[in-house]
Design a protein around this nucleic acid. Structure first.
Lengths: 215, 215
DNA sequence: TTAAAATACAGTGAAAATACGCTAGCTAAT
DNA sequence: ATTAGCTAGCGTATTTTCACTGTATTTTAA
């Protein structure tokens, strides 16, 4: 019996997926949580013998998003497998989740059958790679250089989050205690890396990447 | 037995919700669709006696979004009740769905119990108004700036959608075959109505309102 | 130990976004 | 028929954003 933990902020979706999973043979949902932090807290609290085999994580979550959650779980409980369940299929999202320790990636658009398959394969083989995760993406994971979805530095990520507000770059510079010119550098770098030319592009990217929840 | 139709582009969520609903007593899912157009096509195709009592609609959908779908269903089959199922609780979303014929509004964050309650009440009384809706609607009625008379016009909506791209206002003006100054007027109006001061604000708003799917 | 990156910072100028003031046509309201 | 409101339009000024050319320091890698 495969034990599963679920983290997603949308209760109806989460409960629905839980129902779906418990209908699959040999699978059961052990833990449910509304965000990454809650999941980790529950795993901390639960007895060691009751840990799940697989954690299914949404990327966009309040409090603690999927990336951070995956990273922490991967470090703290290396044996637990992680399956990312996301709305978007942008390369950067996939790569970022896989780099943070995810063993598979399924879209919310997918058919339930694919979810079942992903869970089974991760449990049996340790990973699940659909056509979505192409060889190209896997190759990128190994070659740290020359990938379009270059990993973002902490400062760049912070900057990107702050871009999704009505602050000017000058104000962002003050908040981050940096010179406006440095911020300008971040902007330019991101434009290059992400093939973007406007702040609007940055905002759209940040939302797709799950860095901010538009609420 | 309450017959239900479901429209949502995320298959896993949709199947999950369908499972959830079929677990509720006296409820069954008759039709499932990936977007509004598909739902309407299926309802057109299905025999008249097999129409659902209630349509549950997501707002953010490709092809045809929740607003348009609600409006069409409401006109074509006035007896069928509509329940909006949305990610966001912005006033404008709620009001817009209600204006387009929805009889209730539930968030994806909500507990499954609320969904059940909403379906039951809509079936029995014709509507479901949670504290969420009443509160928001009341707030709206008090705030002169979001009065129903100041809903967005078609042109403003089109403009708002185009804002979520890397186009300049000048380019948007060309696309819409209007003078750049007219576009400027739309922008200014929206800033006033929505209490916004930058294009970034417009983009964030448009996404929350489900006008664009960030893909 | 050099070379090559990554990081932080600087000035300038052009383009885009934002803020106002103003005109005019249409319609609805009493 | 006139007040009020909404839509569409023009002009101008300021602020913000974007693009380009740089420099100095630190880290990383060969």
């Amino acid at each position: 019996m495969i034990q599963i933990a679920l983290a997603d902020d949308h209760a109806i979706l989460r409960r629905g997926v839980a129902e779906l999973i418990s209908k699959f043979e040999d699978m059961t949902v052990l833990i449910e949580a509304g965000n990454g932090k809650e999941l980790i807290d529950k795993m901390d609290a639960s007895a060691i013998k009751k840990l799940p085999h697989i954690c299914i994580l949404d990327i966009n979550m309040p409090e603690m998003n999927g990336y951070e959650t995956a990273s922490i779980i991967h470090k703290r409980w290396p044996k637990i497998k992680i399956l990312a369940l996301s709305m978007y299929d942008t390369e950067i999202n996939i790569i970022k989740m896989l780099r943070n320790g995810a063993n598979g990636y399924v879209l919310k658009d997918a058919e339930p059958e694919e979810l079942k398959k992903a869970i089974t394969e991760i449990y049996n083989n340790g990973f699940y790679h659909s056509e979505l995760v192409t060889e190209r993406v896997l190759h990128m994971l190994q070659n740290p250089k020359d990938r379009p979805g270059e990993m973002l530095s902490d400062n760049e990520t912070t900057f990107l989050k702050l871009c999704c507000s009505e602050k000017t770059y000058k104000e962002i510079a003050e908040i981050m205690s940096l010179s406006p010119r440095t911020i300008d550098g971040y902007r330019e770098n991101l434009f290059l890396k992400l093939d973007i030319t406007t702040r609007t592009g940055l905002v759209m990217y940040a939302i797709r990447a799950g860095l901010v929840i538009p609420n």
